[in-house]
C-alpha cells in the first residue's frame, strides 16, 4: 500500500536496426585475421591461400587485361540470359495470373520443370543449343525463367481485388486495368523475384560456363578449381560475390525508384 515503486520497463527489443559501419568492420576483421593466420602458418597454403595471394591473383588478371575479357564475357551472358528469362517469365507469369486457360495449362509444366537442376540437362543443352553462346544463355534463361514466373503470378494473385473492382466500376478498359492496377500491384513481388533470379543467374554462371567457355568468371573459377590454383579460385569467387552485391544494390535502387509510393 505504502510502498512507491516505479513500473519496470518491459517493452523494447525485437527490433534489429542496421548499423552502417558494422558490416565493413566485420569484413576487415575477418580478412585481417585470415591474413595473419596464413602468415603465421596457422593456415597452410594447401588449406586456404592468404587473402593477399588471392589479391595478387586478381591483380595479375587486371594487369594482363584478362579481367575485362572474363568479365565482359560473363556480363554479356548474364544480361542476355537474364533479360530473356525475365521477359518471357514475366509474360508467362501474367498469363497464369490473368487467364484460366494459361493457369491450367502452364502451372503444371512450370511446377514440373522448376525443380530440375539445369546442370543435369547440360548434355542435352549441348545438342539443342550448341556449345557456343546458345547453351550458356539457355542455362541462364531456364534458371531465371522459372523463379520469375512464380514470383510474377504470385504477385498478380496478390493484387487487391477491390482495386480491380474499383477499376471496373469506373469503366476502365481491360488493358488499363492490367497496366495501371495489376502491373504496379504485382511490381513489389516481381522485383523481389528479380533479386532471386539475378542471384540464381550468378550462381548458374559457373555451370553455364562449364560448356566450352574460354572466357568468363565462371570459366575462370572452374579452371582455378581444376588446376587447384586456390588463390585464383578465391579471387574468382570474390568476383562472383561482388557481382552479386552489385546486382543486389542495383535492384535496391530500382525498388527505391519504382516503389517510392511505399515510403
Amino acid at each position: 500500500m505504502s510502498e512507491v515503486r516505479p513500473v519496470p520497463f518491459r517493452g523494447g527489443g525485437f527490433r534489429p536496426r542496421s548499423i552502417g559501419v558494422v558490416g565493413p568492420i566485420v569484413f576487415v576483421v575477418l580478412i585481417s585475421a585470415w591474413e595473419a593466420a596464413s602468415r603465421l602458418g596457422l593456415i597452410t597454403p594447401l588449406v586456404l591461400p592468404a587473402p593477399s595471394e588471392a589479391a595478387a591473383a586478381f591483380w595479375e588478371l587486371l594487369e594482363t587485361g584478362r579481367l575485362w575479357l572474363h568479365l565482359s564475357a560473363s556480363l554479356q551472358r548474364l544480361v542476355v540470359g537474364w533479360t530473356l528469362g525475365t521477359l518471357v517469365g514475366v509474360s508467362a507469369g501474367f498469363a497464369i495470373g490473368l487467364f484460366s486457360l494459361a493457369r491450367a495449362g502452364l502451372m503444371p509444366v512450370v511446377s514440373a520443370l522448376f525443380p530440375i537442376p539445369k546442370i543435369a540437362l547440360l548434355p542435352l543443352f549441348i545438342i539443342w543449343f550448341g556449345i557456343g553462346e546458345g547453351s550458356k544463355v539457355a542455362t541462364l534463361f531456364f534458371g531465371t525463367f522459372f523463379p520469375t514466373v512464380i514470383a510474377t503470378y504470385a504477385g498478380v494473385d496478390g493484387v487487391d481485388r477491390t482495386l480491380i473492382r474499383m477499376g471496373q466500376s469506373f469503366g476502365l478498359t481491360w488493358w488499363s486495368i492490367v497496366r495501371k492496377i495489376v502491373l504496379p500491384g504485382a511490381l513489389p513481388a516481381i522485383l523481389s523475384g528479380f533479386r532471386i533470379s539475378a542471384s540464381i543467374a550468378i550462381i548458374l554462371l559457373v555451370a553455364a560456363e562449364m560448356i566450352g567457355a574460354e572466357f568468363g568468371i565462371g570459366a575462370y573459377v572452374l579452371l582455378a578449381g581444376n588446376l587447384m590454383a586456390t588463390d585464383q579460385l578465391i579471387a574468382g569467387v570474390a568476383m562472383l560475390s561482388v557481382m552479386g552485391l552489385t546486382v543486389g544494390f542495383l535492384i535496391s535502387r530500382a525498388e527505391r525508384l519504382l516503389l517510392r509510393w511505399r515510403g
Binding site: 482495386l163 474499383m166 466500376s169 469503366g171 476502365l172 488499363s176
Partner: peptide
Amino acid sequence: FNPLTYVFQDFALLPWRTAADNVSLVLED
C-alpha cells in the same frame, strides 16, 4: 463518363498514385 459510380468503404485508392493521379486514373480512358 460513368453514370453509376461507386464509392468504396475502404477507399480503393491506388497506393502507387498520388491523390491527383488517382483522380486522373478514371479519366484517362
